[in-house]
């Protein structure tokens, strides 16, 4: 067991990074979409005609889960977990783990925040459907931070391959 860990610890760290990226960002999205979905269902219960508009708002917090998936996929393919397996050094594994953290953390919290903003915007659409465009801006603002985290994770993963350990 100790021998296995010594040989594969770097890869385990990289895999942990991929798991956090997919898991945390996905969990945040699930919560965000859930909150927005509750609000959407409440509006549709009163006015089924607003289904299209509220569904778009409900979907917005789902993007963080996709970003997490992209990062997880890139991480696993770069570290050889998906292809020809070559054990990583511990240092390199830690680099991959760190590269995955921005989208894991920012993805989780931004998705929940975006879900709440989307729920509030759904309330706007419920009262004033003609303000749909403006209502959509508020949750989209939250997306900025998920995109920034995604960008940093992608850049970090691109650079990780060149880090010598």
């Amino acid at each position: 067991m100790i021998q296995f860990l010594e040989a594969n610890l770097g890869t385990i760290f990289a895999l942990l990074g991929a798991a956090l990226a997919v898991g945390l960002a996905g969990a945040g999205s699930a919560r965000g979409v859930g909150v927005a979905g509750e609000a959407a269902a409440g509006v549709v219960a009163e006015d089924p005609g607003k289904f299209g508009k509220v569904m778009v708002l409900q979907l917005l917090p789902g993007t963080q889960g996709i970003y997490g998936l992209i990062i997880g996929f890139i991480c696993m393919s770069q570290t050889g977990i998906l292809g020809d397996y070559v054990p990583l050094s511990v240092g390199k594994g830690l680099v991959y783990l760190c590269a995955c953290l921005p989208i894991a953390i920012a993805g989780y919290f931004s998705a929940i925040g975006q879900g709440k903003a989307a729920a509030a915007s759904i309330g706007v659409v419920a009262k004033k459907p003609d303000q749909f465009g403006k209502a959509m801006i508020f949750p989209i603002m939250v997306e900025t931070y998920a995109i920034l985290a995604l960008l940093v994770s992608i850049l970090a993963l691109s650079g990780a391959a060149n880090v010598a350990f």
Binding site: E38, A39, A41, V43, E46, D47, I122, G123, A126, K127
Partner: peptide, 11 residues
């Protein structure tokens, strides 16, 4: 969350 959204529509 759902109840408040429904109330918004009801308002």
């Amino acid at each position: 969350t759902s109840a408040v959204a429904q109330i918004r529509a009801k308002e």
